[in-house]
Design a protein around this nucleic acid. Structure first.
Lengths: 203, 203
DNA sequence: GGAGCAAGTAAGTAACCACTTGCAACCCTG
DNA sequence: CAGGGTTGCAAGTGGTTACTTACTTGCTCC
């Protein structure tokens, strides 16, 4: 692997655990297995290294899309949520850390929140389509439901290990359960072919 | 105000913005308007100061209860959520910071998460009571719904200012909207006697 | 085999950090 | 007024941090 990438990877690891101030150039160099001077020769400064880190991170964060023509909303949204949740779980330490440093270094957290922001918009669009074609009841509070689902995904990803009492479901089943409850809250009708979701609130 | 409390208050402020490493004794002393030496004379060390800080913080964090005999679930839960949300919004910087330092200083975040953990249990108990007396449909996925509502409250409190696109509702209306969607997702029937809550969901 | 470049090594610099010491000023109580 | 306790002030200590400089080593390409 390129030495640049090795340093960035190491910086990510150290930063995720110790934060910006705790991620000393010494620690990063050791983790990367290079000399500390090499770090400065490659990036110029610690600040520049972290800029590069953020750039490569957002570049490597894919946001899945939802189909233009919904067929099976529950299935499609579950798959979509699972992908996002998996990605956030992988990066949970880094997300937590950068989020926690918002007061000190806003840029980091802002660039990290682009993903969820964008995901929320994709989901909202999808739900509007569902409403338009009559697959969701017209009175559902889409913005609120989207906020809740996005919060649930983020919350699960970053605080499951801290507050296990709040997240009793196993990791693997979480996305399906969030989507199921979300759909009931929104009044999305289950697709005919699938098992009934026993609606008590709907029409 | 007692000099001890003044220092703790100042430390809270500085810590919330700069984190543990960034909250230098110098900054804290300036913020408190005392000499830096006084800080060491009063608490002995920076670590001891932060222990005291966490103690007074959790001591001052009240968790509202929910009635043993539910009458109007929507009203009761909205009020309950509003109190929790308000408290978390007030302390959002501190929550974010301590949460972000979980890798480095787990104790802080763990003692901060006691509140939400406990709140989740209170809410779960309440919902089980609702189910038991037939005010909520028996097939609702309570653990999932609780996780989603708690995540929504925490998410709103700590990331509304970072991801405004995800939280389009005004702050004041958020609790009611979360609870409304939550109740639909759980299959809690709206109470008969109340003014129509813009219901298209209930009969 | 030598030029050129990427990387390691050793040492140092100025700033900052938590924390200490010694002393002077003040305030309250007796 | 005397004395003890609290606070401020000035200075310093040892450790750490980001970053620099000067030099050496090893590898590649001609």
């Amino acid at each position: 692997m390129d030495i640049r990438d090795r340093i960035i990877d190491a910086a990510k690891k150290v930063y995720a655990q110790h934060g910006f101030r705790g991620a000393t150039t010494r620690l990063i160099a050791i983790e990367a297995g290079v000399n500390e001077v090499t770090l400065f020769r490659t990036f110029g400064s610690k600040a520049a290294l972290f800029e590069a880190l953020m750039q490569t991170h957002v570049a490597k964060s894919p946001i899945p899309t939802l189909p233009n023509s919904p067929v099976d909303p529950e299935l499609e949204m579950t798959e979509w949520c699972a992908v996002i949740l998996a990605h956030m779980r992988e990066n949970r330490s880094m997300i937590r850390t950068s989020f926690g440093e918002i007061g000190d270094r806003p840029e980091a957290a802002l660039s990290m929140s682009e993903g969820p922001n964008c995901a929320g918009m994709i989901l909202t669009d999808y739900l509007l389509r569902l409403q338009a074609i009559g697959m969701a009841s017209a009175d559902g509070d889409i913005p609120t439901a989207v906020a809740m689902l996005m919060s649930s995904i983020i919350g699960d990803a970053i605080s499951r290990d801290v507050m296990p009492g709040v997240f009793p479901q196993p990791e693997s089943e979480a996305p399906a359960k969030y989507v199921r409850t979300f759909m009931r809250g929104l009044g999305v009708k289950p697709v005919r072919s699938r098992a009934p979701v026993h609606s008590a609130a709907g029409d």
